[in-house]
Design a protein around this nucleic acid. Structure first.
Lengths: 259, 259
DNA sequence: CCTTGACCTTGACGCAACGTCAAGCTTTAG
DNA sequence: CTAAAGCTTGACGTTGCGTCAAGGTCAAGG
């Protein structure tokens, strides 16, 4: 008879205990407009009824699933179809998990390197990179002038600058290898971000057409990718020919879409 | 000849570019004591040398691997063996990845539930147990004093204790429902084990006669079983009246044989 | 009437790691 | 000489509350 409409009236502590949260959280939700008290007494005390409890339960459920408070508000207030919101959320969760996988690969890679060669990172992080080693290639492909300019730039860096630059290359290569080892797609956002970094790196070297004012950056990047695959010395930097192919594909796609 | 001792001196922007980061980050590292400039000019400008660059490179490498700045400082300053720190870190990464996996499963589970029956997550209401909701019943059946004691006990648990307790109730109820759904007999070992857990749970609540020193535990348990069937609010916790009847029978048998 | 003591209120800082203005001084290029 | 860079410190914003801090409210007890 009188239980058809349960007229509940809880204090902030009580409803917090009922829902398994804290009063601070309730005040926070009130502050951000996610859950207002059903009633505020003359003394300023917050009071909640059963409708508020239902909403609170839903909020906490969605929060446990990892949604942010704004997203929760979207679902509860503006008919944002919980299923859709959760579907989008689960996609984000998957990408996060993949990111962790890559980072794990990267860290384990670094640990292995540390265990093997005790050379702590930085010094000869990238032993495979000897500037003059590619003198002939550079001259042949992009002209003597290019090499001369590059050489001047390189020696101008000083040993510290060179170490820094090599370290940067090493980090980039490690990330490429990690991404490849994790089975990342060349078209994925991660691979494309690597491609962006790669191009950024290329254009920072004044010895290449990529950094020339009117240079054909796009064609240069594409050609470079092919060289990575064809030349075993380069391919070695990317985990062999397959890894290099992965780099090439990612670079090609990036060049096509962004350059 | 002259390159043996590189005497470098870069501005904040220059070293930032060399290392592939921003000047803001450099100032931040200075502020938190992770990397101080090698020199500060009379005009207040920060200047960095090659030693600072090496340190910066190491910082950025470790940061890319996901370490926090305090952890990085630990590694760089107090011989914290990079390999050990990274090993601990990779363990943390794995646990995070597993957590994401569980969350993904949970979200997909919820999505499936939403797709099937549109019963939006209201079912999870009350976790099957709302303490104050049954105030009247408790007072009527076992006296006002009992409710007061129970309420005191309940609030004395603290949020953590309450959450744990509710989780326990939830697990018990889920197991009851699962057993009922599986067609388990009330007299079976499984059902009797559930009944034992149920009584154990009841006697842990000081608000009931079950936990009183000379209380009539047996009669209490029997009466409680009847109430589960008669009261739809309780019955709902056990999969409807039939499920509740199953619980009642199992409890009655257990009380008869063991109490 | 006064005092606890429990419960309530509104601030406001802290956390991680910077991004992003903002206001103002210095140096360099034209 | 002036405008454009480049530098400085200062401070807010981000995510979701935990954690004091200072003080008002209310029922019970001396």
């Amino acid at each position: 008879m009188d239980n058809d409409k349960p007229r509940m009236d809880w204090s902030i502590q009580q409803i917090a205990a009922l829902a398994g949260t804290t009063s601070r959280t309730l005040r926070h939700y009130d502050a951000v407009g996610l859950l207002a008290p059903s009633r505020i007494a003359g003394n300023g005390y917050r009071h909640y009824d059963d409708a508020a409890l239902v909403r609170l339960q839903r909020i906490l459920l969605l929060r446990e699933l990892g949604l942010g408070l704004p997203a929760i508000a979207e679902v509860l207030d503006h008919q944002e179809s919980a299923a859709d919101a959760l579907a989008a959320h689960v996609a984000w969760l998957h990408s996060e998990r993949e990111r962790l996988a890559r980072q794990i690969a990267s860290v384990e890679n670094t640990i292995a390197t540390l265990d093997k060669g005790e050379t702590i990172m930085a010094e000869k992080m990238f032993d495979g990179f000897d500037h003059t080693q590619y003198k002939d290639e550079v001259e042949e492909r992009w002209g003597k002038d290019a090499y001369a300019r590059g050489d001047t730039w390189w020696r101008g860096l000083g040993t510290a600058g060179q170490a820094a630059w090599k370290e940067r290359v090493g980090a980039l290569n490690r990330d490429w290898i990690a991404a490849f080892a994790a089975g990342t797609e060349a078209s994925s956002a991660e691979a494309q971000e690597l491609a962006r970094r790669h191009v950024e790196w290329l254009t920072s070297v004044p010895a290449t057409p990529a950094s020339a004012p009117g240079g054909d950056v796009r064609g240069y990047v594409a050609g470079l990718g092919e060289m990575y695959v064809a030349d075993p010395r380069f391919a070695a930097n990317y985990g062999g020919s397959e890894g290099a192919a992965f780099v090439r594909d990612a670079l090609a796609l990036y060049a096509e879409q962004n350059l």
